[in-house]
Computed example of a mutant assay.
Amino acid sequence: MFFSLEPKTRREDLYDRENELDELERAFENGRIVLLTDTRRIGKTSIYS
């Protein structure tokens, strides 16, 4: 199997998503409400974890 079925726990495991993670962190720091939507198996649960 190429991919683990468990959510990722390390930032490095979310390949090439640094900009998105930084943007999410800034939104949370500013007290914004964030809704993550996308297709299946793209990593939404890993972001939440």
Rank of each mutant, 00 (worst) to 15 (best):
D38N: 09
R26L: 14
T37W: 07
F28Q: 03
R40F: 09
R32F: 01
T37K: 11
N30V: 00
N30C: 08
L24E: 10
R32Y: 04
E23M: 09
E23Q: 13
I33D: 05
E20L: 08
A27W: 09
E25C: 03
R32T: 00
E29Y: 14
T37L: 07
N30Q: 14
R32P: 00
L21T: 04
I33V: 02
D13W: 01
N19K: 15
E12K: 02
L24P: 01
L14G: 01
E6W: 03
R26N: 12
A27Y: 09
I33K: 05
L21Y: 11
R10Q: 12
L14Y: 03
T39R: 12
E23N: 13
R10A: 11
K8C: 10
L36V: 04
D22F: 10
L5T: 10
I33C: 03
E12L: 02
R26A: 13
R10V: 01
L24K: 05
L5C: 08
F28N: 00
D38C: 10
P7C: 11
D13P: 00
T39K: 10
L36Y: 05
T37V: 08
K8V: 03
K8T: 01
E23R: 13
K8R: 14
E20S: 04
V34I: 02
D22M: 10
L14S: 03
V34S: 02
R17K: 11
L14K: 02
V34G: 05
D22W: 09
L35G: 02
N19V: 15
N19C: 14
L36E: 06
E12N: 06
E23L: 10
E6C: 03
R26G: 04
F28W: 06
